[in-house]
Simulated scan of single mutants.
Amino acid sequence: MDFMARRPTIKDVAREAGVSATTVDRVINGRTLVREETMRKIAEAANRVGYHGKGIIQGKLKTSVPEVRLGFILLKKSQEFYKNFALQIEKEVSGRPDYRIIVDIRFSSSQSPDEFAQLLQDLGRRCHAIACTAVNDKRLDPVVQRLRDEGVVVVSVLNDFAQGIRKGYIGLNNMKIGRTAAWMITKTVHQPGKLAIFVGGNRWHGHDLREVGFRSLVREVDRGFTVLDTLVNLETRQVTYEATLDLLHRHPDLKGIYVAGGGMEGAIAALREVHDIPHVALVVNELTAESRSALIDGYAVMAIATPLPELCAALVDQMVESSSKGVEGASSQYFLEPKLILPEIL
Rank of each mutant, 00 (worst) to 15 (best):
D104T: 12
R126P: 01
V103N: 10
P192D: 08
A46N: 08
G263Q: 05
A181D: 04
S64H: 11
V218C: 09
W204K: 03
V259L: 03
K194C: 11
V68M: 09
R126S: 13
V24N: 04
G224S: 13
F85W: 08
A117R: 11
A305H: 13
H207F: 13
G59K: 08
S331V: 00
A17F: 09
A314K: 06
A260R: 10
D160S: 12
V27Y: 05
R40V: 01
D122V: 12
A131N: 03
H190P: 01
Q163F: 02
M184K: 14
N174F: 10
Q145D: 12
G18E: 07
G178K: 03
F225P: 02
E286T: 08
V227E: 04
I304G: 01
Y51L: 10
D114P: 00
K187P: 00
G193Y: 13
N159T: 14
F225K: 10
G256S: 04
R179G: 12
G30I: 02
Y82R: 05
V280L: 12
V280P: 09
G164S: 04
V152P: 04
I170D: 01
M264V: 04
I42G: 01
F225A: 06
T23H: 06
L234V: 09
N285G: 00
L228T: 09
K187H: 15
R210N: 11
S109V: 08
V157L: 14
A305L: 02
R35F: 00
E150F: 00
T22R: 10
M175H: 11
V27L: 05
F214P: 07
R223D: 09
H279R: 15
K138I: 07
N47H: 06
T23I: 14
V154G: 04
E310M: 06
D104V: 10
F81C: 03
A313C: 01
T230Y: 03
A182T: 07
R35W: 00
D98W: 00
A314F: 01
E328N: 14
M1G: 13
R237A: 06
I89K: 03
K54A: 11
K41C: 01
V144W: 03
E80I: 07
G171I: 01
H128I: 02
K77T: 02
I185F: 08
Q318P: 00
R96Q: 14
V49R: 08
N173S: 12
L234Y: 15
S322I: 00
E290N: 12
A289H: 04
N136L: 01
H251N: 12
P8E: 14
E310D: 10
R15H: 09
E36D: 00
Q145R: 15
R139L: 09
G178F: 06
M39Y: 04
F3T: 14
A117C: 11
V221E: 12
I345E: 15
L248Y: 04
T22D: 08
Y51V: 06
S109D: 08
I89P: 00
E150A: 10
K325C: 02
T9L: 07
V218Y: 09
K60C: 02
